[in-house]
Design a protein around this nucleic acid. Structure first.
Length: 643
RNA sequence: GGACCGGUAGCUCAGCUGGAUAGAGCAGCUGCCUUCUAAGCAGCAGGCCAUUGGUUCGAAUCCAAUCCGGUUCACCA
């Protein structure tokens, strides 16, 4: 049990005994003591004055005295300032923690709790390579999975690949039209990039073909449209010519976009893509073969990137195999009367009672929509694993979708409903706004990683410390540092906040960064090497009550908080909590390490003032290195022995 | 328009289940490498915590209203 929890339960006992009052653990507010006061943890006593019927100071003193006499192995002293009871935790407690935990590689982790969680993340489209936004998703998903494992959950990492649909057909069609049989092997281009290039080619071609149609509409020439579409375009064009709309930039922009969209659908190339999609759905062997081939190229490319990123999955789902699911659920829903059918044969659910709209689940022609697929996939996943919780790592633009998804599952009384959790994260944006593949403003993931690794190489060369490393070792280190910087950068911010990335300013390697923390770790390892100690099992030579110097104590205290931090990270579903803590810990170690008085290290380790201090500090830095390594592991970041 | 998310130092962000004088990093300015790794350390400077009102011993934190920014409300996925 953590110190904070121990103090809490001691306080509950004390209050019961002193004031015959039952309070729950969560009623005890405990803070880290401000540095200007004596003690490590502070109990806020104001809330207790209600039943103590004493002044805050008096209440604090009574409580402090009780804790001191009844929990001497925990509390060694206290002071009261206004309504704050500052507790000094006994050295024996801290040294006890240090001695039992310093060499425990799983320190702070929770034992298995018997619960199963699925984390679905990554979920790429197979028509283009990964970009910066995907990286945030991948790192978040991976990290959350690790955090859940460390909290005792059994975790299944799942990836639902979006491998079919009109976007894939676009790449396929453009390849057929323009590639002259080019393959990754023939061009030397990574598979996902090659396919992505043809997706871009499709879009440029589409734009070219759409332009004359748009121009005609703007000149009131509607020859490209017929029937209801023609009416729609006519209306939009008329609206656009109204002076009040012309003045409203936002409105006119929206209308123009709608016209553009309609025009794009009228292009020959778009029509061809749609035909291709129909052929795909009908199982046309030629189209299916091309599809399988091109997806194969993309998977090869993804495989390389995933491997480099250190990301993996336990279970793959493919939309081509799941997109027809969900119809059974619709049947069940109709039988239960939860869903209803309209005259055109389409199937809907009415969510107006929940403050939402009606939602379509099956088109009039019996085909399913996105929501239907997701309902079916939710059932499939549940049937596969019977997990307690199912986490979807998906950008916040889909908040509404997941709200509706869960609601529908509840109404259908699906067992999967209870565990649905949308881990919603903000988009990564550029200074000018969102990344748009159509406009070519995406930051490519592979490029980004290369750049980070190059920067790492440059920094390392400048430091000139590792001349004895082989080329291989150096390359591995550059990857470790570059990726560490990258992952930390994307994980240190609260997931739900959108983040702005400026490609002009490179990601920092100083301060609140991955390399800073990796550096602290390498430093500790360097000291341990320097100390010559290989067997750490005989370091308990100091007594439990030996005094601890301020920074020694501060460092132990901080290490001890890891368990609580780990729980918080799980509760909040936020790796940023781990990132912040790891940085804080590395910083604390650096201060400890560097403190000098008159040119002499206060906390010299190798040349400590006594054998006892040397051993204590060796344990302390071993513990610190271990905690840092554990934190970074949770973020998917490796830490080096040297750098 | 409805729903959801955000607004804290020049910039990027912590802190938000109410607690002491609001913290980091970057950028700027000072110092510190014959001593365990300077990707570091110590320090200076930088704030009407969007605004207004409320709740209370106490509000950046909770509530209400307002303002600003974003997302979303498809027979696209």
């Amino acid at each position: 049990m953590s110190v904070v929890q121990t103090i809490r339960s001691a306080a509950v006992t004390a209050i019961k005994s002193l004031y015959s009052q039952e309070v729950s653990l969560s009623d005890i507010a405990i803070n880290v003591t401000k540095p200007e006061f004596e003690g490590e943890y502070t109990i806020v006593v104001f809330p207790f004055t209600k039943f103590s019927r004493q002044k805050p100071e008096e209440t604090g003193n009574n409580l402090g005295n009780y804790l001191l006499t009844h929990f001497p192995e925990l509390i060694s002293g206290f002071n009261v300032v206004k309504g704050f009871l500052n507790l000094s935790i006994s050295n024996a407690y801290w040294t006890g923690f240090l001695q039992t935990q310093f060499n425990n590689p799983h320190s702070g982790r929770k034992p298995a709790n018997g619960k199963k969680v699925m984390v679905e993340y990554s979920s790429p489209n197979t028509n283009k390579p990964l970009h910066l936004g995907h990286l945030r998703n991948n790192f978040l998903g991976y990290s959350i999975a690790e955090i859940l494992k460390a909290n005792g959950y059994e975790v299944i990492k799942a990836n639902l690949v979006n491998d079919r649909g009109i976007h894939i057909c676009k790449s396929m069609l453009a390849w057929q039209l323009f590639a002259h049989g080019d393959t990754p092997a023939s061009t030397g281009i990574k598979g996902d990039h090659l396919v992505g290039d043809y997706y871009v080619k499709f879009e440029t071609q589409l734009k070219e073909q759409a332009e004359p149609i748009i121009a005609r509409v703007l000149e009131n020439d509607l020859r490209d449209f017929e029937g209801t579409e023609r009416e729609k375009v006519e209306k939009l064009a008329a609206l656009l010519h109204k002076p009040e709309i012309q003045q409203d930039k936002e409105k006119s922009g929206k209308i123009t976009d709608e016209i553009k969209e309609l025009a794009r659908n009228k292009t020959e190339i778009m029509q061809q893509a749609k035909i291709m999609l129909q052929q795909w759905e009908a199982g046309n062997p030629e189209v299916r073969t091309l599809w399988a081939t091109m997806n194969g190229w993309v998977y090869e490319g993804f495989e390389t990137t995933y491997k480099r990123l250190g990301i993996d999955f336990d279970k793959m789902y493919y939309e081509s195999q799941t997109y027809l699911l969900g119809k059974d659920l619709v049947e069940d829903g109709l039988r239960k009367g939860v869903l209803f059918r309209k005259e055109d044969n389409s199937v809907w659910i009415d969510l107006t009672a929940d403050g939402l709209d009606q939602k379509l689940l099956l088109r009039g022609d019996g085909t399913s929509v996105y929501m239907t697929q997701d309902l079916g996939t939710a059932r499939l996943k549940y049937d596969d694993y019977h997990m307690d919780q199912s986490i979807y790592v998906v950008a916040d633009e889909q908040n509404y979708h997941f709200k509706v998804l869960q609601l529908i599952l509840q109404k259908l009384e699906e067992p999967a409903a209870a565990g649905i959790y949308h881990l919603s994260y903000g988009m990564v944006e550029l200074p000018h706004g969102r990344m748009k593949s159509r406009e070519g403003t995406v930051v490519d993931a592979d490029d980004m990683i290369d750049e980070m690794v190059n920067t790492a190489a440059q920094h390392t060369k400048e430091s000139g410390k590792l001349r004895d490393f082989s080329e291989d070792e150096l390359q591995r280190l550059y990857e470790m540092i570059g990726l560490g910087a990258m992952k930390f950068f994307l994980l240190r911010v609260d997931p739900k906040k959108k983040m702005i990335f400026n490609p002009e300013e490179s990601i920092d390697f100083h301060g609140f960064t991955g390399p800073f923390i990796q550096y602290a770790h390498a430093r500790i390892k360097s000291i341990l090497r320097e100390s010559g100690v290989t067997d750490t099992s005989h370091l308990d030579t100091y007594r439990h009550n030996d005094s601890l110097l301020p920074m020694e104590k501060a460092l132990i205290v901080l290490n001890e908080q890891f368990g609580e931090v780990l729980q918080d990270a799980e509760k909040e579903m936020s790796p940023s909590i781990i990132a912040n803590y790891a940085f804080h810990l590395a910083q604390q170690f650096n201060s400890f390490y560097a403190e000098k008085v008159n040119g002499v290290y206060t906390y010299s380790i190798v040349n400590a003032e006594s054998e006892e201090k040397r051993n204590l500090r060796l344990q302390l830095i071993t513990l610190t290195a271990n905690t840092i390594a554990q934190c970074m592991k949770l973020l998917g970041i490796d830490v080096p022995e040297r750098m």
